[in-house]
Design a protein around this nucleic acid. Structure first.
Lengths: 117, 117
DNA sequence: ATATATACCTTGCATCAACAGGTAGCTTGT
DNA sequence: ACAAGCTACCTGTTGATGCAAGGTATATAT
Protein backbone atom coordinates (compact mmCIF):
# COMPACT_ATOMS: atom_id res chain seq x y z
CA UNK A 1 0.00 0.00 0.00
CA UNK A 2 1.37 3.43 -0.86
CA UNK A 3 2.39 5.66 2.00
CA UNK A 4 -0.72 7.74 1.78
CA UNK A 5 -4.22 6.95 0.62
CA UNK A 6 -6.16 9.57 -1.31
CA UNK A 7 -8.45 11.33 1.14
CA UNK A 8 -11.38 10.94 -1.21
CA UNK A 9 -11.18 7.14 -1.14
CA UNK A 10 -11.81 7.19 2.60
CA UNK A 11 -14.99 9.25 2.31
CA UNK A 12 -17.91 7.25 3.54
CA UNK A 13 -15.75 4.30 4.58
CA UNK A 14 -14.42 5.39 7.96
CA UNK A 15 -17.73 4.97 9.73
CA UNK A 16 -17.92 1.38 8.53
CA UNK A 17 -14.38 0.76 9.73
CA UNK A 18 -15.20 2.13 13.17
CA UNK A 19 -18.26 -0.10 13.38
CA UNK A 20 -16.10 -3.09 12.44
CA UNK A 21 -13.44 -2.24 15.03
CA UNK A 22 -16.10 -1.88 17.73
CA UNK A 23 -17.73 -5.14 16.69
CA UNK A 24 -14.49 -6.79 17.79
CA UNK A 25 -13.94 -4.92 21.05
CA UNK A 26 -15.25 -1.90 22.89
CA UNK A 27 -12.66 0.82 22.61
CA UNK A 28 -11.86 4.45 23.25
CA UNK A 29 -11.50 7.04 20.48
CA UNK A 30 -7.76 7.54 20.67
CA UNK A 31 -7.21 3.78 20.39
CA UNK A 32 -9.67 3.45 17.50
CA UNK A 33 -7.84 6.31 15.80
CA UNK A 34 -4.52 4.62 16.30
CA UNK A 35 -5.92 1.40 14.88
CA UNK A 36 -7.32 3.09 11.78
CA UNK A 37 -4.22 5.20 11.32
CA UNK A 38 -2.20 1.98 11.07
CA UNK A 39 -4.75 0.16 8.93
CA UNK A 40 -5.75 2.83 6.40
CA UNK A 41 -3.86 6.01 7.20
CA UNK A 42 -6.66 7.92 8.84
CA UNK A 43 -5.62 11.17 10.56
CA UNK A 44 -5.87 11.12 14.36
CA UNK A 45 -7.98 14.26 14.59
CA UNK A 46 -10.54 12.77 12.24
CA UNK A 47 -11.90 10.40 14.85
CA UNK A 48 -13.65 12.84 17.18
CA UNK A 49 -16.09 14.48 14.75
CA UNK A 50 -16.77 11.01 13.36
CA UNK A 51 -17.50 9.45 16.78
CA UNK A 52 -19.69 12.41 17.65
CA UNK A 53 -21.67 11.93 14.46
CA UNK A 54 -22.07 8.22 15.09
CA UNK A 55 -23.20 8.89 18.66
CA UNK A 56 -25.72 11.45 17.40
CA UNK A 57 -26.97 8.87 14.91
CA UNK A 58 -27.44 6.38 17.75
CA UNK A 59 -24.96 3.86 16.38
CA UNK A 60 -22.73 3.87 19.48
CA UNK A 61 -23.06 4.37 23.22
CA UNK A 62 -20.34 5.72 25.51
CA UNK A 63 -18.97 5.41 29.05
CA UNK A 64 -15.92 6.80 30.85
CA UNK A 65 -13.10 4.72 32.27
CA UNK A 66 -10.22 5.90 34.44
CA UNK A 67 -6.90 5.64 32.67
CA UNK A 68 -3.70 4.20 34.23
CA UNK A 69 -1.88 7.17 32.68
CA UNK A 70 -3.27 10.43 31.40
CA UNK A 71 -6.89 11.60 31.41
CA UNK A 72 -9.99 9.39 31.53
CA UNK A 73 -10.92 7.52 28.42
CA UNK A 74 -14.27 7.75 26.67
CA UNK A 75 -15.18 4.21 25.66
CA UNK A 76 -17.55 3.33 22.83
CA UNK A 77 -19.67 0.28 22.17
CA UNK A 78 -22.11 -0.61 19.44
CA UNK A 79 -25.83 -0.21 19.93
CA UNK A 80 -28.38 -2.48 18.23
CA UNK A 81 -28.71 0.18 15.56
CA UNK A 82 -24.93 0.17 15.22
CA UNK A 83 -24.85 -3.57 14.64
CA UNK A 84 -27.59 -3.27 12.04
CA UNK A 85 -25.72 -0.44 10.33
CA UNK A 86 -22.55 -2.53 10.30
CA UNK A 87 -24.32 -5.37 8.47
CA UNK A 88 -25.95 -3.05 5.97
CA UNK A 89 -22.84 -1.00 5.28
CA UNK A 90 -20.63 -4.10 5.04
CA UNK A 91 -22.93 -5.53 2.37
CA UNK A 92 -22.99 -2.19 0.57
CA UNK A 93 -19.20 -1.89 0.68
CA UNK A 94 -18.71 -5.43 -0.61
CA UNK A 95 -21.14 -4.92 -3.48
CA UNK A 96 -19.52 -1.64 -4.39
CA UNK A 97 -15.94 -2.89 -4.09
CA UNK A 98 -16.77 -5.95 -6.19
CA UNK A 99 -18.32 -3.76 -8.88
CA UNK A 100 -15.23 -1.54 -8.95
CA UNK A 101 -12.93 -4.61 -9.04
CA UNK A 102 -14.94 -5.98 -11.96
CA UNK A 103 -14.41 -2.72 -13.84
CA UNK A 104 -10.69 -2.89 -13.15
CA UNK A 105 -10.29 -6.40 -14.53
CA UNK A 106 -9.10 -6.39 -18.15
CA UNK A 107 -11.58 -8.04 -20.46
CA UNK A 108 -10.47 -11.40 -21.86
CA UNK A 109 -9.10 -11.01 -25.37
CA UNK A 110 -11.90 -11.52 -27.88
CA UNK A 111 -11.12 -13.56 -31.00
CA UNK A 112 -11.17 -11.59 -34.22
CA UNK A 113 -14.55 -11.95 -35.96
CA UNK A 114 -14.61 -14.42 -38.87
CA UNK A 115 -14.72 -12.94 -42.33
CA UNK A 116 -18.07 -13.28 -44.07
CA UNK A 117 -18.20 -16.02 -46.69
CA UNK B 1 -25.91 -4.71 -4.52
CA UNK B 2 -28.48 -2.39 -2.94
CA UNK B 3 -30.41 -0.12 -5.23
CA UNK B 4 -28.33 2.91 -4.40
CA UNK B 5 -24.73 3.28 -3.30
CA UNK B 6 -23.83 5.91 -0.74
CA UNK B 7 -22.52 8.93 -2.61
CA UNK B 8 -19.52 9.16 -0.32
CA UNK B 9 -18.26 5.71 -1.28
CA UNK B 10 -17.89 6.86 -4.88
CA UNK B 11 -15.74 9.86 -3.95
CA UNK B 12 -12.36 9.47 -5.48
CA UNK B 13 -13.27 6.23 -7.24
CA UNK B 14 -15.05 7.46 -10.35
CA UNK B 15 -11.92 8.73 -12.04
CA UNK B 16 -10.31 5.33 -11.63
CA UNK B 17 -13.39 3.67 -13.11
CA UNK B 18 -13.30 5.98 -16.11
CA UNK B 19 -9.63 5.18 -16.67
CA UNK B 20 -10.45 1.47 -16.51
CA UNK B 21 -13.33 1.79 -18.97
CA UNK B 22 -11.12 3.74 -21.40
CA UNK B 23 -8.33 1.19 -21.04
CA UNK B 24 -10.74 -1.29 -22.63
CA UNK B 25 -12.07 0.91 -25.42
CA UNK B 26 -12.09 4.53 -26.47
CA UNK B 27 -15.52 5.92 -25.74
CA UNK B 28 -17.65 9.01 -25.58
CA UNK B 29 -18.88 10.59 -22.35
CA UNK B 30 -22.52 9.65 -22.59
CA UNK B 31 -21.58 6.01 -23.18
CA UNK B 32 -19.08 6.01 -20.32
CA UNK B 33 -21.79 7.49 -18.12
CA UNK B 34 -24.24 4.80 -19.15
CA UNK B 35 -21.65 2.13 -18.40
CA UNK B 36 -20.88 3.51 -14.95
CA UNK B 37 -24.54 4.10 -14.20
CA UNK B 38 -25.13 0.39 -14.74
CA UNK B 39 -21.99 -0.74 -12.92
CA UNK B 40 -22.00 1.48 -9.85
CA UNK B 41 -25.00 3.78 -10.00
CA UNK B 42 -23.25 6.95 -11.07
CA UNK B 43 -25.52 9.81 -12.13
CA UNK B 44 -25.41 10.76 -15.81
CA UNK B 45 -24.65 14.43 -15.24
CA UNK B 46 -21.65 13.56 -13.13
CA UNK B 47 -19.57 12.50 -16.11
CA UNK B 48 -18.99 15.86 -17.78
CA UNK B 49 -17.27 17.75 -14.93
CA UNK B 50 -15.24 14.59 -14.30
CA UNK B 51 -14.12 14.22 -17.93
CA UNK B 52 -13.23 17.90 -18.03
CA UNK B 53 -11.12 17.54 -14.92
CA UNK B 54 -9.35 14.48 -16.34
CA UNK B 55 -8.72 16.30 -19.60
CA UNK B 56 -7.32 19.28 -17.71
CA UNK B 57 -5.08 16.88 -15.78
CA UNK B 58 -3.82 15.46 -19.06
CA UNK B 59 -5.10 11.95 -18.40
CA UNK B 60 -7.28 11.79 -21.52
CA UNK B 61 -7.31 13.19 -25.05
CA UNK B 62 -10.43 13.89 -27.08
CA UNK B 63 -11.69 13.88 -30.66
CA UNK B 64 -15.11 14.40 -32.25
CA UNK B 65 -16.99 11.76 -34.25
CA UNK B 66 -20.19 12.24 -36.27
CA UNK B 67 -23.09 10.35 -34.78
CA UNK B 68 -25.54 8.17 -36.78
CA UNK B 69 -28.29 9.78 -34.69
CA UNK B 70 -28.17 12.93 -32.62
CA UNK B 71 -25.31 15.40 -32.20
CA UNK B 72 -21.60 14.64 -32.66
CA UNK B 73 -19.91 12.59 -29.98
CA UNK B 74 -16.86 13.67 -28.07
CA UNK B 75 -14.63 10.59 -27.83
CA UNK B 76 -11.98 10.09 -25.14
CA UNK B 77 -8.83 8.01 -25.07
CA UNK B 78 -6.14 7.53 -22.50
CA UNK B 79 -2.88 9.41 -22.71
CA UNK B 80 0.40 7.96 -21.46
CA UNK B 81 -0.19 9.89 -18.25
CA UNK B 82 -3.64 8.38 -18.09
CA UNK B 83 -2.29 4.87 -18.36
CA UNK B 84 0.26 5.59 -15.64
CA UNK B 85 -2.49 7.05 -13.44
CA UNK B 86 -4.60 3.95 -14.01
CA UNK B 87 -1.82 1.67 -12.79
CA UNK B 88 -1.07 3.81 -9.77
CA UNK B 89 -4.71 4.32 -8.78
CA UNK B 90 -5.56 0.66 -9.34
CA UNK B 91 -2.77 -0.35 -6.96
CA UNK B 92 -3.89 2.26 -4.46
CA UNK B 93 -7.51 1.10 -4.66
CA UNK B 94 -6.56 -2.55 -4.22
CA UNK B 95 -4.39 -1.82 -1.20
CA UNK B 96 -7.08 0.30 0.35
CA UNK B 97 -9.94 -2.12 -0.40
CA UNK B 98 -7.89 -5.02 1.00
CA UNK B 99 -7.19 -3.06 4.17
CA UNK B 100 -10.87 -2.28 4.60
CA UNK B 101 -11.82 -5.91 3.91
CA UNK B 102 -9.30 -7.03 6.53
CA UNK B 103 -10.95 -4.73 9.06
CA UNK B 104 -14.34 -6.16 8.20
CA UNK B 105 -13.30 -9.78 8.73
CA UNK B 106 -14.25 -11.02 12.19
CA UNK B 107 -11.21 -12.05 14.19
CA UNK B 108 -10.85 -15.82 14.68
CA UNK B 109 -12.07 -16.85 18.11
CA UNK B 110 -9.14 -16.82 20.51
CA UNK B 111 -8.98 -19.64 23.06
CA UNK B 112 -9.44 -18.53 26.63
CA UNK B 113 -6.05 -18.03 28.30
CA UNK B 114 -4.95 -20.88 30.59
CA UNK B 115 -5.26 -20.21 34.27
CA UNK B 116 -1.94 -19.71 36.03
CA UNK B 117 -0.78 -22.69 38.08
C1' DA C 1 7.48 24.46 37.79
C1' DT C 2 8.36 22.13 33.62
C1' DA C 3 8.39 18.52 30.15
C1' DT C 4 6.38 14.61 28.14
C1' DA C 5 2.84 11.51 26.90
C1' DT C 6 -1.85 10.46 26.69
C1' DA C 7 -6.56 11.73 25.53
C1' DC C 8 -9.89 14.64 24.10
C1' DC C 9 -12.19 18.23 21.14
C1' DT C 10 -13.88 22.09 17.67
C1' DT C 11 -13.80 24.56 13.58
C1' DG C 12 -12.85 26.08 8.91
C1' DC C 13 -11.36 24.36 4.59
C1' DA C 14 -10.80 21.52 0.38
C1' DT C 15 -12.56 18.28 -2.51
C1' DC C 16 -15.80 15.82 -5.27
C1' DA C 17 -20.34 13.51 -6.52
C1' DA C 18 -24.92 14.90 -7.44
C1' DC C 19 -28.19 17.12 -9.97
C1' DA C 20 -31.07 20.85 -11.47
C1' DG C 21 -31.45 23.23 -15.30
C1' DG C 22 -30.03 24.13 -19.54
C1' DT C 23 -28.48 23.99 -24.92
C1' DA C 24 -28.32 21.61 -29.23
C1' DG C 25 -28.59 18.22 -33.20
C1' DC C 26 -30.91 14.53 -35.64
C1' DT C 27 -34.88 11.65 -36.84
C1' DT C 28 -39.64 10.76 -37.15
C1' DG C 29 -44.42 11.90 -37.34
C1' DT C 30 -48.11 15.12 -38.22
C1' DA D 1 -43.05 23.97 -40.82
C1' DC D 2 -43.46 22.39 -36.46
C1' DA D 3 -43.59 19.21 -32.49
C1' DA D 4 -42.00 15.27 -30.08
C1' DG D 5 -38.63 12.10 -28.75
C1' DC D 6 -34.10 10.69 -28.33
C1' DT D 7 -29.27 11.43 -28.09
C1' DA D 8 -25.39 14.13 -26.38
C1' DC D 9 -23.40 17.67 -24.15
C1' DC D 10 -22.56 21.15 -20.37
C1' DT D 11 -22.24 24.48 -16.02
C1' DG D 12 -22.96 26.15 -11.45
C1' DT D 13 -24.54 25.35 -6.92
C1' DT D 14 -25.16 22.34 -3.04
C1' DG D 15 -24.08 19.09 0.56
C1' DA D 16 -21.27 15.68 2.98
C1' DT D 17 -17.04 14.21 4.85
C1' DG D 18 -11.98 13.75 5.86
C1' DC D 19 -8.31 16.68 7.23
C1' DA D 20 -5.58 19.18 10.20
C1' DA D 21 -4.62 23.27 12.68
C1' DG D 22 -5.12 24.71 16.99
C1' DG D 23 -6.56 24.03 21.31
C1' DT D 24 -7.70 22.08 26.44
C1' DA D 25 -6.86 18.81 30.07
C1' DT D 26 -4.83 15.03 33.03
C1' DA D 27 -1.20 12.11 34.93
C1' DT D 28 3.58 11.06 35.57
C1' DA D 29 8.44 12.02 35.92
C1' DT D 30 12.06 15.19 36.77
Amino acid sequence: MPETIDIQLKKGVLGLCVLAVLARNESYAYEIASHLSDAIGMGEGTIYPLMRRMQTDGLVATYMVESPAGPSRKYYKLTDAGRAALEAQRDEWRGFASAVDALLEPLPATPAPLEEA
